[in-house]
């Protein structure tokens, strides 16, 4: 099994990395057309799928970029491509919009929409697998910064007239899972940075006359962190391929495992990195915090780790029952003697 990037994936990722190395951000990415990576080729994009975007997002995470790469570029790009509609101008997306729909008029408050501070249009996945698009000029937009510095906004719709697509079977679930996976891929890049910083710090920082990395307690904490990130990396690649593939059960399984991991082991890994640094790790000035916050934002958006744990548990129960029907059943026993 080989998850190394294809030439095309590497090319996109390298372009992102070069922009960030040169201190660039949204303007430079936009100029090079990189924010259109997930858009159809006919409209100047690369037609990239979720797995194609992973290496680029890892670069975004490593750079902790403030550019709204997921919220106002990749995610709406994937959704619009899938729904087969496209129009000029930057869009943002809410994968789980809770709105009231009266014909083509939408009413509701979307409290946290990443990228809505810079977009012209808002794309919403509706529960019935339709896509709704409204110009943000007809909405009330209250911009703010997320904890990791990226822009977002609260969007208030009061009978806003939307363009609503026909039903695209499976659309909403697929985009929601893609959203989880894209943010997780970016968190993976941030976690690489966290790992490298912590490893380097343990080697150079001395206390009690010796490097921190010579203490076994810290070595073992670092091994746990290393191990968790390797496992998370495997789940990111697995989920990304499942988002692009036709096997829905496997997508649900891998994406929920990923989100559960992100909100569990990865949140703890980020916290452990701060702990291993000591006091410097809790200062605003030190770069570690930027990466930690990026991990936390990915954890908080698009459904909680508990939501996904519960979803995974339901899937396991359904699959087990289906497999069990094919096999002779045990006696159902009360679990109390």
């Amino acid at each position: 099994m080989d998850f190394s990037p294809t030439d095309d994936q590497r090319m996109i990722a390298d372009s992102f990395a070069r922009v960030f190395e040169g201190g660039g951000g949204q303007a430079e990415l936009d100029e090079l057309g990189l924010l259109l990576a997930a858009h159809p080729e006919a409209t100047g994009g690369f037609g990239a799928g979720v797995a194609d975007l992973v290496p680029a997002l890892v670069e975004c995470g490593r750079a902790a970029t403030q550019a709204p790469v997921i919220g106002a570029a990749f995610l709406p790009g994937l959704a619009l491509t899938r729904a087969g509609i496209w129009a000029e101008g930057p869009a943002c997306l809410d994968p789980e919009a809770e709105v009231r729909i009266d014909d083509d008029r939408l009413t509701g408050v979307l409290p946290v929409v990443p990228g809505a501070d810079v977009a012209d249009r808002l794309v919403m996945c509706l529960p019935d697998d339709r896509l709704a698009v409204v110009p943000l000029s007809v909405a009330e937009v209250v911009p703010f910064a997320l904890v990791d510095g990226r822009g977002a906004a609260e969007v208030r719709l009061d009978g806003a007239r939307a363009t609503i697509t026909d039903t695209v079977p499976g659309l909403t679930g697929a985009i929601q899972d893609s959203a989880v996976t894209l943010y997780a891929a970016e968190a993976l890049g941030a976690l690489y940075a966290i790992r490298e910083m912590t490893q380097a710090y343990l080697k150079e920082r001395r206390q009690f006359g010796r490097p921190l990395g010579s203490f076994q307690a810290l070595q073992h904490a670092m091994v746990d962190l290393y191990h968790d990130i390797e496992h998370f990396q495997s789940l990111v690649h697995l989920a990304a391929r499942c988002c692009d593939g036709p096997d829905v059960a496997m997508r649900l399984r891998s994406v929920s495992a990923l989100k559960r991991y992100l909100g569990g082991r990865m949140r703890r890994a980020a916290a452990s990195a701060i702990q291993m640094h000591g006091g410097i790790g809790v200062t605003e000035e030190y770069a570690l915090g930027r990466y930690v916050k990026r991990v936390i934002v990915a954890d908080l958006l698009n459904g909680s780790a508990d939501d996904h744990g519960a979803r995974l548990a339901r899937l396991i129960a359904e699959e087990t029952r289906a497999a069990d029907r094919a096999a002779p059943a045990d006696d159902l026993k009360e679990n109390v003697a």
Partner: peptide, 27 residues
């Protein structure tokens, strides 16, 4: 028991860890 939410969550965590281990080993 498999429908019990508390036990189900433990199973889900085990499944997530197993899946990660399986892919990591193969990789």
């Amino acid at each position: 028991l498999i429908d019990d939410p508390v036990f189900g969550m433990k199973l889900a965590d085990l499944e997530a860890d197993f899946l990660a281990q399986e892919v990591t080993n193969l990789r």
